[in-house]
Design a protein around this nucleic acid. Structure first.
Length: 399
RNA sequence: GCGGUUGUAGUUCAGUGGUAGAAUGUGGGAUUGUGGAUCCCAAGACGCGAGUUCGAUUCUCGCCUCCCGCU
């Protein structure tokens, strides 16, 4: 499935840094170029070994090296520069070994942009592959071969370096929303313990590499909705001086109020010159709101997974395409959207094809929508009009 | 034409002398660091007629229907 017939516009092309242009100094890996006067929103430039990307940005999830139902060309057309893959899941199918022989995931998936990898800590939520963990690491079972694996923080760093992503994530322990405070405190303790080992081993593995070729490493803050635990987690990680800081463990059932209370708290604790990544958050309004609290990076399976399940984003809110009322609809998904899908297909067509699970660009549209939304947000921040833009979006958005 | 068999939700099947349950489908909803899912809610049925009985979707009879066999 590909929509390569759209010619790249000039602006999009220019936004893609060529490898030879990427050999700049990496002394300043994150540079703030604009700050809102009315909120914590900011625009920055994150410099990685594969190029630069403007923040805030959203990364589609490419768990096994592909954003489901989108090609690398599609990503380029949409203007997506950065995707995130999953080191553990790639490792399960021997992907990390194959990718190593390609010199990294950038070459393997031919995504001419920037790649993040997640550690696999999140997969502790998945009873199908997670067995148990202790202070040394995590026991997983490989559902393909049936064999058991033991992933230590050190092993995880090695896998992510084999994959050679631009930004790696620490192996963390993610508690669930319904866990007791004691369990979440334990997850924080283990996350800090592992973060230290990740950082040490990661530095050691790259000590001979020139700085401009080094993979970055982000620490992941846990602690659920408890300010004292979050504070402890953040302080432990900040001491280790990571390249960036992730806020993990949200999007699991907590309220927006609980979430943003912690996000605001974290914003005050994390050094201003470090990028902040709110993991797993992909709801459009939630993203915009988080930007106003100073978040720089997002990722989520929401736009891709929900597209396949018939939930589309539009400028007027969520559209459930399988609803009976769209059976004969000649309208596009979103009349305000300029994507290939909205220019060519009706709601009725997309709805009809979904009954047979045919991919006709739903994912393309959702990713395009989010990309344009955040591009607009960056422009609005630069113009000093972000907050009114946010208010307008909130007003127009229907759940 | 005769004999047997069958008839319960849109569909495929349970079940009971005190007016019925599932699966699937349908209509809503959920879905947030992806194993190409899963979960929640709702609506929806005893072929027709007569008899026995306090009461029949259930038992009896007739009609119709499904399928099988015989002529």
């Amino acid at each position: 499935m590909s929509f390569t017939i759209i010619a790249l516009d000039k602006k999009t092309k220019e936004n893609f840094a060529k490898p030879e242009e990427m050999q700049n100094s990496h002394k300043e890996i994150f540079k703030i170029i604009e700050k809102s006067k009315f909120s914590k929103a900011r625009v920055g430039i994150l410099s990685t070994k594969s190029g630069k990307v403007e923040t805030p940005f959203f990364m589609p999830v490419a768990t096994r090296g592909v954003v489901k139902s989108l090609s690398s060309e599609d990503l380029q057309e949409i203007g997506i520069k950065t995707v995130i893959s999953n080191a553990l899941i790639l490792y399960l199918r021997n992907g990390s070994e194959i990718i190593k022989k390609f010199g990294g995931i950038r070459n393997f998936m031919n995504h001419k942009g920037i790649n993040f990898t997640d550690s696999g800590g999140f997969q502790m939520y998945s009873p199908r592959i997670y067995i148990k963990s202790n202070d040394k690491g995590v026991h997983f079972k490989n559902p393909i071969s049936g064999e058991k694996l033991f992933i230590t923080p050190e092993k995880d760093m090695e896998i992510q370096l084999d994959i050679n992503s631009d930004v790696a994530m620490c192996l963390d322990t993610m508690p669930m929303y319904n866990h007791s405070k004691e369990e979440i405190a334990e997850a924080v303790r283990k996350t800090s313990l592992w973060a230290e080992r990740c950082k040490k081993h990661h530095d050691e593995l790259q000590k001979d590499l020139p700085e401009k070729n080094r993979q970055m490493l982000f620490g992941i803050i846990q602690g659920g909705i408890y300010e004292d635990l979050r504070k402890k987690s953040a302080e432990d990680l900040i001491k280790l001086n990571f390249d960036g800081y992730s806020i993990g463990g949200f999007g699991l059932g907590e309220t927006r109020e609980e979430e943003f209370k912690i996000v605001e708290q974290m914003k005050k604790l994390i050094p201003k010159d470090k990028p902040i990544y709110l993991m797993g958050i992909g709801d459009p309004l939630e993203i915009l709101k988080s930007i106003s609290y100073g978040i720089d990076i997002f990722d989520s399976r929401m736009p891709t997974q929900n597209a396949r399940r018939g939930m589309l984003f539009t400028s007027e809110g969520k559209l459930r395409i399988m609803k009976k009322e769209y059976e004969f609809s000649k309208e596009p998904l979103d009349k305000n959207c300029n994507c290939f899908v909205c220019k060519n297909y009706s709601r009725a067509f997309i709805r009809y094809q979904l009954t047979n699970d045919e991919a006709v660009g739903k994912t393309f549209h959702n990713i395009y929508f989010l990309q344009k939304l955040i591009e607009t947000a960056r422009e609005k921040i630069k113009e000093g009009k972000f907050e009114s833009f946010l208010g307008e979006c909130e007003k127009n958005w229907k759940e």
